[in-house]
Design a protein around this nucleic acid. Structure first.
Lengths: 226, 226
DNA sequence: GTCTATATAATGATAGAC
DNA sequence: GTCTATCATTATATAGAC
């Protein structure tokens, strides 16, 4: 894994002003949310607020440019790591590779607030998970599912959702300390999840069978599950 | 389960103006987020914007009043359903009991944005889960865990987080149609989760053992997991 | 308790000079 | 391309009449 590898063409300060504004926006949006004033972004990029509008037209279009750029970064990061950090480990790579910290923060913020990038990102993860799970099932290390796409989506939603919620409910003191964040994530999410995946949870089929019945014959609206 | 039971003392319009404003705020905050302008809340409550400030001082304190009231509603709803909708089913009850729709939406919005109520709510759920899981383990229907509190917290975070993320990424067309939301939730979250809990996921201990090793001897910062 | 009117500050966006 | 100056809007919050 090429450790010092910088994100696409972003070597130092050989950036167009437009790109510098966009990068400042990715950073601010990721750290402070999409409510960040244009003026803060402009100051960070060392330009005037008017110039931001001159380049992007509206704040909404600035966000779209950020979405596009972040998605680009992700695509290229994935390509650079094909076969190295496959499937379930890709997010982990993104989280620990320091040069992607702004991208990572931006993705989390998008997942929290919703929007097109969030949906696209989840879909990407699900597609990867489908392949990854199929490999595992074929190799005999993963139990087959009654509904593989649904399982893949659920695993992605629960992994991302649990991590995101943990961070929202109990935010890290120093958001730049990725190592500390990773440690907390392993303790609170990765280990319990892995234990669940390995040693199981329920010893009886009763609840599952009840729910399968419930699905084929749902109660009228207003009532609750039996 | 007393189906038509209205939330605490909120029978009709025998509300003080202050309470009416607070209820309007809970509704708006839950539906449109905490960025909602005071004026919108004031209009909903059929009062002036100034009166909202007169009663609550600041918008922040209005939110605190909402937090407190919602937590109160939850406490009482739990008491009313002791033994009926225990443990893991409580959230489901909250979601399907129509009179609690505003409270439910407000809680989701809090979990999404963070803040004191979110942390408190998660802690409540975790405490309930601990008891619920202990009962299951004692009854022999749930596998014991290496770390019961950690598992309880993880299960709460992943359940809530998966549902919240699914809703954020792919929002419901009609947020008032609780039945449709519940159906989607069962298909996308409940069923896959229950399948995972019942039929398992991994067939080998290798990954868990590797991670346990990793935890006792983490790599230096900047490196990635092996 | 409740309103109207207003102060004050911040926002996104525009206009025009350079 | 870039800036300064400004507009129009919106926000929270205040003051004082009723």
């Amino acid at each position: 894994m090429r450790s010092g590898h910088a994100p696409r063409g972003v070597s130092a300060d050989d950036l167009t002003t437009r790109a510098r504004i966009r990068d400042a926006a990715v950073l601010r949006f990721g750290r402070d949310g999409f409510g960040t004033p244009l003026r803060a972004i402009a100051t960070d990029a060392a330009v005037s607020a008017g110039l931001v509008i001159h380049h992007f037209g509206t704040k909404e279009r600035l966000r779209e440019a950020c979405d596009e750029h972040v998605l680009d970064q992700i695509r290229h990061a994935k390509q650079d790591n094909l076969g190295e950090a496959s499937g379930g480990r890709f997010l982990e790579y993104l989280a620990t590779a320091e040069q992607f910290a702004p991208v990572f923060a931006y993705v989390l913020r998008s997942l929290q607030h919703g929007g097109p990038l969030a949906a696209t990102f989840v879909d990407h993860m699900v597609r990867d998970a489908v392949d990854y799970l199929a490999e595992g099932v074929a190799a005999g290390v993963i139990v087959p599912s009654r509904d593989e796409p649904a399982r893949a989506r659920y695993l992605v939603l629960s992994s991302l959702g649990a991590g995101l919620l943990a961070m929202t409910v109990d935010p890290p003191r120093d958001p730049t300390d990725l190592a500390a964040m990773m440690r907390r994530h392993v303790d609170a999410i990765t280990l319990p999840a892995l234990e669940l995946y390995t040693e199981g949870f329920l010893t009886t089929r009763r609840m599952l069978d009840e729910y399968l019945l419930y699905v084929s014959d749902p109660p009228p609206a207003g009532e609750h599950a039996p």
